[in-house]
Computed example of a mutant assay.
Amino acid sequence: MAGNARDPGVSVAARLLALLGVFDEKASALTLTELADGAELPIATAHRMVRELVEWGALVRAEDGRYVVGRRLWKLGLLAPDQSDLREIASPFLHDIYGATLATVHLAIRDGDEVLYLDRLAGHASVPAVSRVGARLPLHATGVGKVLLAYAPREVHDRVLRTLTRITPYTVTRPAQLESELRRVHRDGYAQTVEEMTLGACSVAVPIRGGDEDVLAALGIVVPRIGRDRARLVAALHVAAQGIGRSLRPA
């Protein structure tokens, strides 16, 4: 970082930003000591500033005592033009899918080695789901995550495949099996999961492409079971994803 936060000439704002700058995709939950060390601040100064950030809603103290980014910062992040435009453009298409299926619908992007949920419409069916707007979940265990992983840069792909954690008994943790599924995403145009993130919840997801055909996001749906409905669900998602993609392209 520019300068040293311990320098008396460094502004309070710079010290607060230094604390927030310690967080990244590899360090999303930090102790007070880790924050102080990362921001190069005395522990007493870091404690006082972290307390103020918690009071404002920029940080949240988790049950284990570590600090994570709070929802107030997340809401500010949604005002960034790229994410706010994507959510606004995608919203009517999400509502169309929800209206046709009454199932939970997700709009997500990749944030580092995780899925970041930009929008979510909760379905009527009693399907357990841990997703929420602003949540980050594993790429390898979610439908939208598998889509995003299939089109992620090679270094992301390799990192994720080295750390496949088991979340339910059905989570795919063998790299060769996941590789095969990711190849099918390219071939068939969709990904699916069966109780890999949450027992009792299955998902189907498709990519959303921009004007240059790059995959910008993923659109998914969560249902109690897929079975014979897969083709219908995939078709509905593809229509919506194509509509979102067209709307994102400059006129």
Results as ranks from 00 to 15, higher is better:
residue 196 E to L: 04
residue 91 S to R: 14
residue 35 L to S: 11
residue 89 I to V: 13
residue 100 A to R: 14
residue 179 E to V: 14
residue 122 A to L: 13
residue 45 T to H: 00
residue 1 M to K: 11
residue 27 A to K: 14
residue 19 L to Q: 01
residue 43 I to Y: 08
residue 19 L to C: 04
residue 203 S to F: 04
residue 56 W to F: 02
residue 148 L to W: 00
residue 85 D to R: 12
residue 165 T to D: 05
residue 48 R to V: 01
residue 121 L to N: 14
residue 169 P to Q: 06
residue 173 T to V: 15
residue 128 P to N: 05
residue 60 V to N: 02
residue 12 V to S: 10
residue 54 V to C: 01
residue 235 A to Y: 01
residue 55 E to F: 05
residue 141 A to D: 10
residue 87 R to N: 05
residue 201 A to K: 11
residue 176 A to N: 06
residue 154 R to C: 02
residue 207 P to E: 12
residue 92 P to C: 01
residue 64 D to M: 13
residue 240 A to T: 09
residue 249 R to Y: 09
residue 7 D to L: 11
residue 161 L to D: 15
residue 235 A to G: 02
residue 9 G to V: 00
residue 80 A to Y: 10
residue 217 A to Q: 10
residue 50 V to K: 07
residue 89 I to E: 08
residue 193 T to P: 06
residue 56 W to M: 02
residue 232 R to H: 03
residue 205 A to C: 14
residue 156 V to N: 06
residue 35 L to P: 06
residue 157 H to I: 03
residue 201 A to N: 10
residue 225 R to K: 15
residue 95 H to W: 14
residue 179 E to K: 15
residue 16 L to I: 05
residue 135 A to Q: 08
residue 238 H to S: 07
residue 35 L to H: 07
residue 124 H to W: 09
residue 74 W to D: 13
residue 43 I to H: 12
residue 95 H to L: 05
residue 7 D to S: 05
residue 8 P to K: 02
residue 34 E to S: 01
residue 47 H to V: 07
residue 201 A to L: 12
residue 54 V to P: 00
residue 12 V to R: 09
residue 152 A to V: 03
residue 183 R to G: 11
residue 57 G to L: 00
residue 158 D to A: 11
residue 107 L to Q: 14
residue 76 L to W: 15
residue 200 G to F: 09
residue 213 E to F: 04
residue 215 V to S: 03
residue 4 N to M: 10
residue 149 L to P: 11
residue 239 V to Y: 09
residue 48 R to K: 02
residue 143 G to S: 03
residue 239 V to N: 03
residue 68 V to L: 15
residue 226 I to K: 05
residue 148 L to M: 00
residue 203 S to C: 15
residue 47 H to K: 15
residue 250 P to L: 02
residue 209 R to H: 04
residue 167 I to G: 01
residue 176 A to F: 01
residue 244 I to T: 01
residue 170 Y to K: 09
residue 85 D to E: 08
residue 121 L to T: 09
residue 174 R to E: 07
residue 61 R to P: 04
residue 70 G to K: 12
residue 199 L to F: 08
residue 55 E to C: 09
residue 216 L to F: 10
residue 67 Y to Q: 02
residue 216 L to T: 13
